[in-house]
Computed example of a mutant assay.
Amino acid sequence: MILVTGATGTIGSQVARRLAAKHPLRLMTRHPERLGDACADAEIIQADYSDPPSLRPALRGVRAVFLVTSNPLADDDGPFVHAARAAGVRHLVKLSAAAVADEQANDLITSWQRRNEQIVRSSGLHWTLLRPRSFMSNALSWAHSIRSKGVVRALHGASLNACVDPRDVADVAVRALCDEEPSGLAHLLTGPAALSPITQTDALSQILGRPLTFEELDVAQARRQLRRQQPHAVAEALLHSAQRQHAGAKREVTHTVEKLLGRPAGSFQSWVSDHAYRFADRDDAIAQSQH
């Protein structure tokens, strides 16, 4: 049995879909109603990291776990890893972040991920760490302004990030969960090129077939935007991360995806082409999604 946590999220949902028809699969979620019927072959169990007793039935009989936690203001990994060890889980595949390997990254979110990695490393279980750069799907945060105004707004328009296709991250996770790979591996996952918000805007414009304008936010504007969506501490961590990107800390391209999967990492252009309907007007989106 394989357990996937975070099954309603960007990576967890992709991992679940890849495993559902091929392996005994259990999905752990706080909100089973959000799963829909995409994983009809999977067992679904409602559980919460903050409720340790709920973790025991989720982990019963499980061989390998895909572990995703998302709240940097909570200690979710510790109780879960303790419960996994008690349940006899053999392998933890942990979704982490590329920034943990950067000594200059000391923001709240990166520090939290480092602590999580240490919990996994010291668990006594076999483990694999996935350290992706930013997801290409983060461009969906621009979808509303693209639809309504033909505008992309971001901080530091020329800064580079070797962003990665979430589907590649999911494929690497499935490989780790299903194969008997050596324990103690950390995979830094990037896309095939380092891109800036300006070059992403150009790619979106070309593929969507409409003119788009890029507008650079200053730090105060970006802070106000983030504070509308995130707690203060998280917003400040994201601004710190953006500053490191501006300084060039996220431009390194690795070939790990290709080495692990035997094919090139997916490009941003390919990701946009496959998700163009997400940036279209509602009626156009419905029509495109049906083709």
Rank of each mutant, 00 (worst) to 15 (best):
V62D: 05
L238P: 00
R114I: 04
V152S: 09
L27K: 05
S137C: 06
P52L: 09
I207Y: 06
H246T: 05
I11N: 00
N138C: 06
F214W: 07
A16H: 02
H23G: 00
G78F: 11
F66P: 02
L35C: 06
Q113T: 00
I109V: 12
Y49I: 07
T213C: 04
P52W: 03
A74F: 09
R56E: 15
R227T: 01
A173T: 10
A74T: 04
R133M: 13
F214T: 00
T10A: 09
D37P: 05
A280E: 14
G88D: 02
A154Q: 05
A21G: 03
I286V: 15
A222D: 06
R85L: 05
A84T: 01
N106Q: 10
Q118S: 14
C39T: 09
V65F: 03
Q118N: 13
E181D: 13
D107I: 00
H82N: 00
A186T: 01
S141I: 05
R223K: 15
L217E: 03
G36K: 13
V152P: 07
S159V: 05
L185Q: 13
D107K: 01
C39W: 11
I109M: 09
L226Q: 03
A84Q: 02
G191T: 04
G6I: 03
I198R: 08
Q46T: 11
S50A: 15
L140S: 08
D41A: 15
Q113C: 06
K22V: 07
V164F: 07
V65G: 02
R278F: 14
E181S: 12
E258V: 07
A203E: 12
V68S: 10
T128S: 15
F268Y: 13
N71C: 04
Q221L: 01
I119K: 11
P182S: 14
L212R: 08
V151T: 13
I109T: 09
D76H: 11
S267D: 05
L67M: 04
G262A: 12
R34D: 04
K250F: 13
I146N: 12
A98G: 11
E236I: 09
V15C: 08
Q200I: 06
S54E: 05
V81A: 08
T254P: 03
E215L: 13
S13L: 05
Q200H: 00
A158I: 14
K250T: 03
P57R: 02
G209A: 09
